[in-house]
Design a protein around this nucleic acid. Sequence first.
DNA 1: TGTACATCAGTGAACGCGCGTTCACTGATGTAC
DNA 2: TGTACATCAGTGAACGCGCGTTCACTGATGTAC
Lengths: 227, 227
Amino acid sequence: MPKPPKPSPTTPRRRGRPTASTGPGRDNDARVHLLDVALRLFAEQGIAATPLSLIARKAKVTPALLHYYFGSKDKLVDAIVDERLQPLSAALGQRLAGDDRDLRGAVEDFVSTMLELLSANPWFPQLWLREVLNEGGLLRKRLIERVAPLVAHRVREVVQQAQHHGQINPDIDPRLLMVSLIGLTVFPLAAQPIWRAIYPCDDITTEVLRRHVLALVLRGLELPDAH
Amino acid sequence: MPKPPKPSPTTPRRRGRPTASTGPGRDNDARVHLLDVALRLFAEQGIAATPLSLIARKAKVTPALLHYYFGSKDKLVDAIVDERLQPLSAALGQRLAGDDRDLRGAVEDFVSTMLELLSANPWFPQLWLREVLNEGGLLRKRLIERVAPLVAHRVREVVQQAQHHGQINPDIDPRLLMVSLIGLTVFPLAAQPIWRAIYPCDDITTEVLRRHVLALVLRGLELPDAH
DNA sequence: TGTACATCAGTGAACGCGCGTTCACTGATGTAC
DNA sequence: TGTACATCAGTGAACGCGCGTTCACTGATGTAC
């Protein structure tokens, strides 16, 4: 057992070295560092293709230490999902399922929030794509069951209403808009290293990407010209 | 050596069993079947996560047979890339680097061709995303060096010219349009199982997706209204 | 203050297992004479 | 036509290796008295 046993409430005070003042293990510097290293490697080359020995070497510790902190590779992956991916996914979902704005405002918020959070966590898009697209991906189930429906159904409703009132492009499919918006934000960031290798574009910041996507989508949502 | 030695030209005719009339191994039914099974499993759960033993079991042969035909796992992956992914990528590139149409026609062709070829090969999007986004992905290098530049530079030029003549939305970034188009086509198809699980949409065929994407993009490229 | 000791983070060496791979072998299929 | 044999597709059992994992152990750090 790596984790120390719970202190019995009958014991007034435990003998020996105390548990690092803030509690055992949880918010440990070494633990956090191991998560950082593992997360980077998982995002770069995939979970299955990353041996614990590599994580250990990069973090300059022993593979045994990874078991000391996490118990197993599976549980290390769980920890990454629980403590890194899941909170970010949840934050995204929360900020997107928000209040009743008009469609333009909602879309602008969606794109902006997405790009902002994803740029602040560059490892996210790749790992998210891999985990979500993989048949047995860990995030996939949670996404389908919890995060996605909330956001997806809201977007669909707002689009349907706006179309019903003749305010936006009637050729847009209400259900596919959400998919398009993700494809326009998550994919470009995940593929960033590739298109940056094709032509020089140091001037393309996240803000430039944001303006490009919004220009395309907001214009795309407008009613076609009558003719 | 799995492959039979080249017949010496001095020998008028070889003794023994002939080489299956069409030549050894290359267009073998068993070999093709093994490639099919391997491709399916690779696309479903990733290359690193798919052991040869699993491929062998699903194909109802021995793992040794995979070495008999391909020599090693690496070479099996090479064969998949060379004989399945690469031709499709090349076909895509060829049909997209096409002649000098106007921008609207080019975009319409791009989206249509992409969706058509990808729908006909449902395994492609997932494997393509994984191999291209992965740091050490096999297709990544080829894509960056050979396929992408041709298409990407053409799209950029056409967009720049159209913008210069004031024909399309000036807020679109000429370099990012290609990325957006891929995000709007490859991603939705790769993520198909997910959004189909979120709300019932049996009626969303590839044609519906095509119309949706084109409605969004073609309208998005138009000049903003003066006001 | 000093000493005994409990607990800590972390290690080094070994373990079993499953992987990719090898190799001697087999029965079937065809050719040569 | 019959027989000897060369080559075929494919197998079964074993191999070495690297993986995730285990476990006895260590020096450092702090507490109790």
